[in-house]
Simulated scan of single mutants.
Amino acid sequence: MPQASPPRTSAHLVALTQEIEKKLQRALASPSQRRNLLQELFADIALEVDDRARDIIQSREDLITPAEDGNVGPLCFYDVLADHFVWVPENGRPILDLIVQLWSQSFASHIFSLLFHKWLFEVQLDNSEVLLRYSSALVQGATNVFWIDIQTNTRRFQTLFRYLLEEVALVPDRLEKIPLQAQQDLFLLVSRFIIFYDLADKLESFLKHFPDFPNAFLVGGRADIFVIELADQLQKLKVEPVLIHYLSHLKVLQGLELRMTTSTRLKTCLYSFTSPGGPMYPTRVVRHAAWEALDLLFPVGRIPRHLISLFFRLLYPWYWPSSCWNFILSCLEAVLYSLLRLVFSSWEKLRNAKRS
């Protein structure tokens, strides 16, 4: 993707970097308040840029971020600053040095991933140890901020994810700038969140760029590794709308050639969401979404699965009242929709007859 010409350096951007540097210096000098100061700084750079601030700093057309469309999240301060540190890397050097000194603190990797995710792939670093450290911090920080999006069911860090997928994972020249271990970790990270950020349409291209894994002969090919990561991600999700979103988009897995062990692992994961009670305690909406995904991906054995599920439901009488009530509601809803379709169909036929 061609990059825009370097924008004019804004005095407001310089002021922003100075404020970030001051807060990091305060955090370094105050061990007792260090975590709170870093958390406040993270919250500040993750804030959305309002219209007035956007006009003051710079227009979105000046950024390196992907072209704006309906799938791009809100423009945040970290978007602007990440571009600024690419165009004017000397302004980011003092901040980077301070983050390195705070490396082991909470939110340090969060801040690094937001501010320097583009800088890392644009500069030339000859020290392999430093490069590995930065790459590992990027993956760790990105993982943490993406989980913040999942816990709040928002897409505030979608531009970061799109950059890591579209501008790094799918661009070999940039991907090869980081060590192989970091490449593998990055692809595992993207595998876990690609459905959440609605970029599953790039799955085919993403799988083609998968790096080699040393344990591939044990777990299988690229598709197997992707599905294993996805199944593990599903097991960790506790936010109902997010879990439903994942389950409703699993249709992208149709056609993937998987090992028997991988298919069984995915099937077991989905099946765990189809029954009420522990250990998952899924809601009725989640159970239905899991059944739909299970029947879509594994149509063979559909009827026996439902019969077995019904049999085990009958062993727990305390579920009968709610099941009967939901069954009655579903029947009434189906009858109502049938009547409405019949009425509208008859009305349409009558209107057509009058016209003729």
Rank of each mutant, 00 (worst) to 15 (best):
L199A: 14
K202F: 08
L115Y: 01
H110I: 00
S135Y: 09
T159R: 15
D201S: 12
L115N: 04
L170E: 07
A182Y: 05
H117Q: 03
F107Q: 08
L102D: 07
R162W: 12
Y163E: 09
H110S: 02
I111F: 04
F116S: 09
K177D: 06
E122F: 06
F112V: 04
D149P: 03
V145S: 02
P179H: 11
L188C: 14
D185Q: 15
E166M: 14
S106L: 10
Q184W: 05
V139F: 03
T152K: 15
N144E: 15
G141A: 02
Q151M: 13
V171D: 10
F146A: 05
D126P: 00
I148D: 13
S113G: 07
L199C: 12
D198I: 09
S191P: 08
H117E: 02
T154P: 00
W119A: 06
F146W: 05
L186K: 07
S135C: 09
A182P: 09
S191R: 08
K202Y: 10
W119L: 11
R192K: 15
L138P: 04
L164V: 03
F196Y: 15
Q101R: 14
K202W: 04
A182G: 11
A142C: 05
H110E: 05
S128Q: 12
F112I: 03
Q151L: 14
A169N: 11
V139R: 09
F107W: 11
Q105G: 02
F187W: 02
S136E: 13
L189Y: 04
I111S: 01
E166H: 14
T159K: 11
E122V: 05
Q101L: 13
S109W: 09
L98A: 15
L131N: 07
D185I: 01
F146G: 02
L131I: 02
L125P: 04
V171E: 11
H110N: 10
F107L: 08
A108N: 02
Y197G: 01
R192A: 11
D185W: 01
L189F: 09
V168K: 05
F107G: 03
I150H: 08
I150L: 15
V145H: 07
I111D: 01
L125D: 08
K118Q: 13
L199S: 14
F121R: 04
Y197F: 11
L186E: 07
W103Y: 14
D201V: 08
A200L: 08
F116W: 00
Q181W: 11
L164D: 03
L180T: 15
L102G: 05
R155Y: 12
V100K: 06
H117A: 01
Q183A: 08
V145Y: 09
F107I: 03
F116R: 08
I150Q: 14
L131C: 09
F121Y: 10
T159S: 14
V171P: 00
R156A: 13
R156F: 10
I148N: 10
L120Q: 05
Q151A: 13
F121D: 01
T152S: 14
L120G: 04
L164Q: 07
F112C: 01
Q181N: 14
F107K: 12
L132F: 08
Q183P: 09
L132S: 13
K177V: 10
Y197M: 07
A182L: 09
T143C: 14
Q124H: 15
